[in-house]
Design a protein around this nucleic acid. Structure first.
Lengths: 244, 244
DNA sequence: ACGCAAATTTGACGACCATCAATGCGCCCA
DNA sequence: TGGGCGCATTGATGGTCGTCAAATTTGCGT
């Protein structure tokens, strides 16, 4: 059921789960909520008494600027948690597709649990860590130069987080507008970038919401993790001076 | 000493500290390292056996793309921790200014400490939370439309994290190239945006690295936290159906 | 099957930004 | 004091993207 047939609802079997050991007990007191597209799941993450986990469909964390432009700061795919970023600004969270299913966990109970069970605490830390990774990836995508590279990187990123159907297609559970607001582009530019990637044989499209990466190398321009200095080499010859 | 005279080296007095209670003991086994500009502090955050805290100066987390373009994914100002994002991609971390002083904390010891003292664990969680806030803020900055707004937002963000000198100026501990790589712009565009903001009376500049915000309202375009739907209103009338 | 509304795509044009190039500024050192 | 070097600023130009507009497709209820 839902739009991601392969995503398992149990905590243990979720592939994006980091520490699967015996946390399934959390689901014991988790409500299961069902949302339609556009419905608000939670309007102030920090003030919410619950944590949430997306089971099926998709949700988005977003903010609307005074200019009217909407900025999406996070896409929540099946397996993603949210509601634990207490220090954050307030973002609206709403379902991005119909049949979005979410489980909610009482925040209070999890936090007291974390104080007694170090494995729960470790689990929470790993959730934060995963969120940090996701945000960093988004920053890398936003930092790319051209619209086609942004869209391509985004599709690669999504490919790593969603499952294929039998034919190998990946279903994008979001509109072009969502992609535009996530990437900081206009809808038309997103559409043009997709057409360009399709014509160049980098991706394949089936309808408007199914795609497949054909040539990941043409997109990636991967990381040279090192630190080749772009500008000033700086005093690289000096050695570290440990004072104490 | 260093470039941020107001930043206190003790953990308790740091204004960006969230849970200051009795963590000063951590400094007991912390080395104090001194770097010059361009020196690499840590080339693989995840593999590092230490956590670090910037005491003075500035460091940057960055990555170099195959295109040669450098992307800065984080600026580390006095008070910031790094080294605890175990799941992240590997980013190079290097000093961005001379006289960057860093304290290093053995990762192993802190993690065992966290398993026995819930306050330490809470402290670590709050560090993650703060990092998430910083990344979200960067995403919001990168999502702005024009170069002047990006640069302006960046200056506002920096203003909140650094202290003024006696005359009210804020010292930018970084070059235009760093700003450009952080904001995804070219150096020339950054320079032009600064000139434009100065001419319009939005900011004031003293030399090349001291600035002051004169008209924050002209920059902010702040958040309308809500979720005014940009595209499809969606089936907003439908109510939530709780299945279990 | 039909028809309407929403979503997507494509085109034309103008604004903005990256690039190339030249100049000015601050600092170190001979 | 002068020259060299890194950094910052300013100008000119072409490419990219946002905006306005229209055509086309998709989705869905009748």
């Amino acid at each position: 059921m839902g739009e991601s047939p392969m995503s398992d609802e149990s905590l243990q079997l979720n592939p994006r789960q980091i520490s699967p050991c015996s946390i399934a007990s959390l689901d014991a007191f988790a409500a299961r909520l069902h949302y339609h597209r556009g419905q608000e799941i939670c309007d102030d993450e920090a003030a919410s008494p619950c944590w949430f986990r997306v089971v099926a469909g998709m949700a988005r964390r977003s903010m609307v600027r005074l200019s009217g432009r909407r900025q999406i700061v996070g896409l929540l795919l099946p397996g993603d948690f949210f509601g634990f970023s207490s220090q954050s600004k307030s973002f609206a969270i709403e379902a991005a597709s119909d049949d979005t299913i979410v489980r909610s966990y009482p925040r209070q109970r999890l936090e007291t649990l974390a104080q007694t069970d170090p494995r729960i605490a470790q689990f929470i830390r790993s959730l934060s860590s995963e969120m940090i990774s996701g945000l960093e990836e988004q920053i890398l995508i936003l930092g790319r130069t051209t619209a086609a590279k942004k869209v391509g990187s985004f599709l690669v990123s999504v490919t790593k987080r969603l499952t294929r159907d039998q034919a190998g297609w990946i279903l994008l559970p979001m509109s072009r507008y969502d992609m535009a607001d996530y990437l900081g582009l206009s809808v038309e530019t997103v559409s043009r970038a997709l057409s360009e990637l399709r014509k160049s044989g980098t991706i394949a499209l089936a309808g408007t919401r199914q795609f497949r990466i054909l040539d990941a190398d043409a997109i990636e321009e991967g990381a040279v993790g090192g630190s080749l200095p772009r500008t000033t080499p700086g005093s690289r010859d000096c050695e570290v001076t440990v004072r104490v």
